[in-house]
């Protein structure tokens, strides 16, 4: 037996190298596994290099842009001065509205759903595998970023944290084919699901044919998935298909955020561990 093992040790070793990861894949499937100490070590080694490279390239691009921008800065300054005056008057009006809103909320004993801390982060790299559309950001467990938290920009939602280590986290984008987000139409409050379909528009699913939705409608998160806070912009409805038969209507959603050109993001919401036991996970990476 021992001599047989010795004789075939090379093919055996190669067989193990081939079949062990296959078995791991078939067992864990699309869920993947949590990072172990080797994973964390490799990420700790590569992520700072990614960050350094990104900073170098950004620095070079910014230097060129700054030079070009300086040429038209006087005209722009005048225009901004005028815009600033307009904005200040708008802010005063909004301040009044905000105070009124606060009084009314108090009157109605409305408890605003606080999604948790907001952590700013910078995108340092893109996942080199096309199978899963994800990016790596420069904030991790040390900064209060954990798996399950949502990632947004001022324009709208970006995705969800799927893995966090020391100072870095990986974020699966909403455009990824495995992504599902619980959404509603802002105008009519009709509910549905936004599904990722690779690079490009999202798909509006599970929207009943009788629901009121039109081309150009703004789609926002409904918050019912327990992942994304309610009211965040997802995108706008395009290519609405209302068929004569069937239960649901279908549409494309043009994402509000161009996920291929991300730079700075904000991590918000609660991690999986902080979710209530009864919370649903409709809007999650499946």
């Amino acid at each position: 037996m021992l001599s047989l093992l010795k004789r075939y040790r090379r093919p055996l070793l190669v067989g193990i190298l081939l079949l062990y990861p296959l078995a791991a894949f078939l067992v864990s499937g699309r869920r993947g596994r949590d990072p172990n100490f080797i994973d964390r070590g490799v990420i700790a080694l590569t992520a700072p290099v990614q960050q350094g490279l990104t900073a170098t390239i950004d620095g070079a691009v910014a230097a060129v842009r700054n030079y070009l921008d300086l040429r038209g800065v006087r005209q722009e300054n005048d225009a901004l001065h005028l815009e600033n005056l307009q904005l200040r008057s708008t802010v005063q009006v909004l301040g009044e509205t905000r105070a009124e809103n606060g009084r009314l909320r108090k009157l109605l004993a409305y408890a605003e759903a606080v999604p948790g801390p907001e952590v700013p982060a910078r995108v340092v790299g893109v996942n080199p595998v096309a199978k899963l559309l994800s990016v790596r950001i420069s904030s991790g467990e040390q900064d209060g970023v954990f798996r399950g938290m949502s990632v947004v920009t001022p324009d709208g939602i970006v995705g969800q944290v799927i893995r966090a280590t020391g100072g870095y986290a990986d974020v699966a984008l909403v455009t990824d084919p495995q992504s599902r987000v619980a959404v509603r139409v802002q105008r009519s409050r009709a509910r549905g699901t936004a599904a990722g379909a690779g690079n490009g528009p999202l798909t509006l699913e599970n929207m009943l044919r009788t629901e009121d939705v039109e081309d150009g409608d703004l789609i926002i998160t409904s918050g019912t998935d327990g992942i994304y806070p309610p009211g965040l912009v997802v995108g706008r409805v395009t290519h609405l298909e209302k068929k004569e038969h069937g239960m649901f209507q279908r549409a494309d959603i043009l994402p509000a955020v161009d996920t291929s050109r991300l730079e700075e993001v904000l991590v918000v919401g609660s991690p999986y561990s902080a979710m209530a036991p009864g919370a649903t996970a409709e809007g999650s990476q499946k």
């Binding site: 062990y20 990861p21 894949f25 590569t46 994800s134």
Partner: peptide, 28 residues
């Protein structure tokens, strides 16, 4: 054979790790 298979395993593992969801697929 052995050296290449070991190196390919390591390279695949790195790719798996960079993907954000290590499943073993790219190692295999």
């Amino acid at each position: 054979l052995v050296e290449g298979a070991l190196s390919a395993f390591a390279v695949g593992y790195l790719l798996d790790l960079m993907s954000g969801q290590p499943t073993g697929l790219f190692t295999f």
